[in-house]
Amino acid sequence: MDVISLRNISISFDGEPVLKSISLNIRDKEFITLLGPSGCGKTTTLRIIGGFTKPDRGDVFFDGQRINGLPPYKRHVNTVFQRYALFPHLNVFENIAFGLRITKTPEKVVRQKVGEMLSLVNLSGFEKRQSGALSGGQQQRVAIARALINKPRVLLLDEPLGALDLKLRKEMQGELKNIQKRSGITFIYVTHDQEEALTMSDTVVVMNAGEILQVGTPEDIYNEPRNAFVADFIGESNIIPGVMPADFAVDFCGGRFECVDKGFEKDEPVDIVLRPEDLTLIEAGNARIHGVVRSVTFKGVHYEIIIEGMGCMWTVHSTDYAAVGTEAGLEFEPFDIHIMHKS
């Protein structure tokens, strides 16, 4: 069952098209991430679902009902804003209770529900603190508790972890995922961080320049990127131009390679993706792909090695070391080759 559907949504700001007729279905209770570089229209999409921005054309459906003109305060959708937007004149308790105060909930119920929310986000005992006296991570949790207390069907999160440091971000990723599972609320999450998107989501929507490029599970998006942009944006890739002479065969770098893809036109020009971690370093002598090592960078778990050869720069992630200036060869298996239509 789709909780939210977008149909042919278009919008421009000052004559600049920001969304170009996008359509998207969001299933109930899923964790869906809108992923893309800044300016791709992901935040605008979120604001249209929240009711803060009206699309120029197209429809928004909630549970099958058209909600285009419905103001934010009548939608069963709540938002965690990018810089939290906590109310500075209220303490933690009153910030979280805000939604209940609006509906004139009895004091006893307010106390009980705010208490539940505080323990959900691990902030029990912080009731009396002023929002200005909290750390970034704590403000973040208050913002989440405040948005969840109205029991929305859908929670919108606009780069909620953007302002946190790396360690805290990792912790919060796990916590958010837990909260989503426990509460059974649909999360629509906006980020430009591909690693965050892959870690947390059930579904990833890759966007660029106002268009949706690909929708799929994190595995699908990573393993079967639909075009060069997606491949490049989701993790590092070597993208090489080639031609498909027949099913299960592809020509690039002056050679014919076996692959597992089929269904392309005969001699169709394609982009070939080879992930850096799928390439293995071997002796240069008997390798079909070989070149000169141009740089080696230590990355912790592996070395990032750049090899120049066969008219390309190859990025390799390997636990083996190769000295700069030496000859090196590359090897890969047929299923490591991902083939995409030219975009």
């Binding site: 103001p71 709540n78 938002t79 937007a85 109310f87």
Partner: peptide, 15 residues
């Protein structure tokens, strides 16, 4: 003011 404060209040159900 944080430009999102007003929207946050609307979002939480305030007219």
């Amino acid at each position: 003011l944080d430009p999102h404060l007003f929207e946050a209040a609307l979002d939480l159900g305030a007219k």
